[in-house]
Amino acid sequence: MAAVALVLFGVFLALDGGVRIAVQRRRTGESGVRRPVGFFHWCARLASALGGLAAGVAAPVAELSGLDPLPGLDQPALRTAGAVLAAVSIAAVFACQLAMGASWRTTVDPGERPALVTTGPFRLVRNPIYTGLTAMTTGLALAVPNIVAAAGLAAMVIGNELQVRRIEEPYLDRIHHAAWRQYAARTGRFLPGLGRLRGHGSDTAPHGPSL
């Protein structure tokens, strides 16, 4: 299953780093690629990137090199389910990126004001791309269940949480104000119904997000 995990992650890189950028350039005339701004932003992005590489590359290579799987997780059914979950999640991430249309960016740019997307998969959750990335990494960790993949999954979760809670959602609140608060009040953060903004969106100062 290590070879399958490597292939799946290669497909993800091709879609995320190649096809999606090409589509954006054809649609809008520019790539959508943005650099993180500030130390904290770089740390969040680095954690997610290293998490993906650990689960999608380092863990399969380690297994091929003889690293033992974690006890209790080396089950053919779990490995197969993990590979299927990773494949479905990769497709879902790409579909969610396409659903953002011209608003898609690799990360936020404080100087830009893209439109707030609340349709398609964004009607169900506010951050479906990050949900998909976490699910993809979980699938890879099940397909190749060793300590390297587990560390990669932890890094991905930490990076995504930081990116969403400390960077992207404050940015959206700042540029869209009441529209974002009303959207966040009715829509879960990563899963439907969970992590909605407390107190119903309003035109006043933002309420604290629920956990």
Rank of each mutant, 00 (worst) to 15 (best):
M1L: 11
V7M: 08
G10R: 12
G10P: 01
V11A: 08
V11W: 06
F12E: 14
F12R: 08
L13A: 07
V19K: 01
R20T: 05
R20W: 05
V23C: 07
R25V: 02
R25E: 12
R25P: 02
R25C: 06
R26H: 13
R26A: 14
R27H: 10
G29I: 04
R34N: 11
R35P: 08
P36F: 13
P36S: 13
G38R: 05
F39G: 13
H41V: 07
C43T: 13
R45C: 01
R45V: 01
R45P: 00
A47P: 04
S48L: 07
S48C: 00
S48M: 01
G52Q: 09
A55I: 03
G56T: 08
A58M: 11
V61M: 11
A62V: 06
L64E: 02
S65C: 05
S65Y: 00
G66R: 02
L67G: 01
D68R: 14
D68Y: 02
P69D: 07
Q75V: 07
A77F: 11
T80C: 10
V84P: 08
A86E: 05
A87G: 09
S89T: 08
S89A: 15
I90M: 06
A92G: 15
V93T: 02
Q97M: 10
A99V: 12
A99D: 12
M100P: 00
W104Y: 14
R105H: 01
P110N: 12
P110M: 12
G111R: 15
R113F: 06
A115E: 15
L116C: 09
V117R: 13
T119H: 15
G120H: 10
F122H: 15
L124K: 08
V125K: 06
V125F: 07
R126K: 04
N127H: 10
I129R: 04
G132N: 07
T138Q: 03
A141D: 05
A141T: 11
A141N: 03
V144G: 05
P145H: 03
N146V: 05
N146I: 11
V148R: 01
A150F: 09
I158T: 12
I158L: 14
R166W: 11
R166E: 10
E168R: 12
E168I: 11
P170E: 12
P170S: 14
R174V: 00
R174A: 14
I175M: 09
H176Y: 09
Q182R: 13
R189A: 15
F190L: 13
L194K: 07
G195A: 04
S202G: 14
S202L: 04
S202E: 07
S202M: 04
D203Y: 03
D203N: 13
T204A: 11
P209H: 11
L211C: 01
